[in-house]
Design a protein around this nucleic acid. Structure first.
Length: 420
RNA sequence: GUGGGUAUAGCGUAGUUGGUUAACGCGCCAGAUUGUGGCUCUGGAGAGCGUGGGUUCGAGUCCCACUACUCACCCCA
């Protein structure tokens, strides 16, 4: 217990953190190219924010939040998603008074949901998310989809597909809801148990059922896309025009529904085909009413969240190479009483920007070489009695084995010239 | 919340119908090579078998419970 991380959490070990750093660097770059700047918001917020923002009928709010009372008797919740916090931040600091759109991203933001962990699902996971406030036009939706698509593609993720849908706005969605309920009401008796539950809770979900029988029954169900109001239809058409122009493959899937209540108009997912089936790596959409719902500004917005663990998982299976950081460039070995000389040389090298270290465990020279070998060090410096007496240092290339000797004062420049 | 699988050294595994000091590979440490790694050889350290009960003369091996891990459903990144 004491030496076990809580269920559904994962350590990122020193040997693998370079993979995260690589991802983060790619994400920062992609975001910055499109004018998004980083925002950092707290890991926890007032529970009320999520009840209002995410929607108190959603599964996330009803059964998955980490909620607790703090010592001041406030109800606090660990972020179960990234958008609500960003909206709160946007409102609290009056960012709407600055030139719009206000584009922000968060990176490696921990997200907490009390779920049953399984492949690609944790209780704490991390997201890269972008939010764009104050842009109502479909180009904003499109640029986010393109950004996510190109980012994942550039990372080497294969079998990537983009699915988009429009779920309308408060004007047209209620009409659809009524129609759908009518349609389903007549047939729900023949459908599976979970669908019957969904019928009451969230009828849209019924369309998402994987049961063959249910899929057949709902094949002729009314589609939201046929009932969009003029404004929503036009917006959706513009989005498709943008994507067509950009030339990325996408599919309109009138059945994708997202689990958060705040979406309006555009919703989208980036899905990959893995050996165990489909996996959504990125999901997002437009939320034109959320800002007004939480604050007193009526500002449209659009955004997405991308699961870092899932992206990393896909990078594993697609075998995309992430360049490894060298551990040490130079390992300084020494014999016996020459440790102070070695220590001094290491400090010199580091001051010169070279990754260097020496043995801190009292190992034999031979063991020091073994260690250097195991850590993949390119060069070793050797300080034996002879070198120490003459103020010299021997430098050896681990790959080829060739050695040379140089005065300690010139060690940095000699080593630099030997490092590729 | 529901259902399936698993649980033996740091990692991966073997442990026959329950029977003496739990085995192997990798890794780790050391030596062969007392100023030098990667190959080879030799030796060594390290688990009492997830936890707690029970059955038995005797359990890693059988039974029960719990916990954790894992997969799937639900839902989601």
């Amino acid at each position: 217990m004491l030496t076990q991380a809580p269920r559904g959490t994962k350590d990122v070990l020193p040997a693998e953190s370079y993979r995260w750093q690589y991802l983060e660097a790619s994400m920062r770059k992609a975001a910055a190219l499109a004018g998004y700047r980083e925002v950092r918001t707290p890991v926890f917020e007032h529970t009320e924010l999520f009840l209002r923002g995410v929607g108190d009928t959603t599964d996330i709010v009803q059964k998955e939040m980490y909620t607790f009372k703090d010592k001041g008797d406030r109800s606090i919740t660990l972020k179960p998603e990234g958008t609500a916090g960003a909206v709160r931040c946007f409102l609290e600091h009056n960012l709407y008074a600055e030139p719009l759109p206000c584009k922000m991203y968060y990176l490696n933001a921990p997200i907490f949901r009390y779920e049953n962990p399984q492949s690609g699902r944790l209780r704490e996971h991390h997201q890269f998310g972008l939010e764009c406030f104050g842009a109502k036009e479909a180009t904003a939706d499109a640029e986010l989809i393109l950004l996510a698509y190109h980012l994942l593609q550039d990372l080497g993720i294969k079998n990537l597909s983009v699915e988009i849908n429009s779920i309308g706005c408060p004007k047209c969605r209620p009409v659809y809801h009524t129609r759908l309920k009518e349609f389903l009401g007549e047939r729900i008796g023949q459908m599976c148990d979970t669908c019957r539950e969904r019928f009451d809770r969230n009828p849209l979900r019924v369309l998402d059922c994987k049961e063959k029988k249910c899929q057949e029954i709902t094949r002729d169900a009314p589609s939201m896309l046929d009932l969009l109001c003029d404004e929503c239809r036009k917006h959706f058409e513009e989005l498709q025009d943008c994507l067509d122009q950009a030339g990325i493959p996408y599919r309109v899937n009138s059945r994708i529904v997202r689990g958060l209540d705040y979406y309006t108009k555009t919703v989208f997912e980036l899905i990959t085909e893995t050996k165990d089936g489909k996996l959504t790596v990125c999901g997002g959409g437009r939320y034109d009413n959320l800002v007004a719902e939480i604050g007193d500004q009526d500002i449209p917005a659009v955004g997405f969240g991308m699961g870092l663990e899932r992206v990393l998982m896909l990078l594993d299976s697609d075998g995309a190479g992430i360049p490894k950081d060298p551990w040490y460039e130079v390992f300084v070995t020494y014999m016996g009483a020459n440790r102070p000389h070695a220590f001094k040389l290491v400090q010199m090298l580091r001051a010169d920007g070279i990754r260097a270290d020496l043995d801190h465990c009292g190992r034999s020279l031979k063991a020091q070489f073994k260690y250097a070998n195991k850590t993949g060090t390119q060069l070793t410096a050797i300080i034996g009695d002879e070198e120490a007496e003459n103020g010299m240092v021997k430098i050896k290339s681990m790959a080829g084995g060739e050695e040379c000797t140089a005065p300690v004062q010139e060690a940095c420049s000699v080593i630099r010239s030997m490092l590729r």
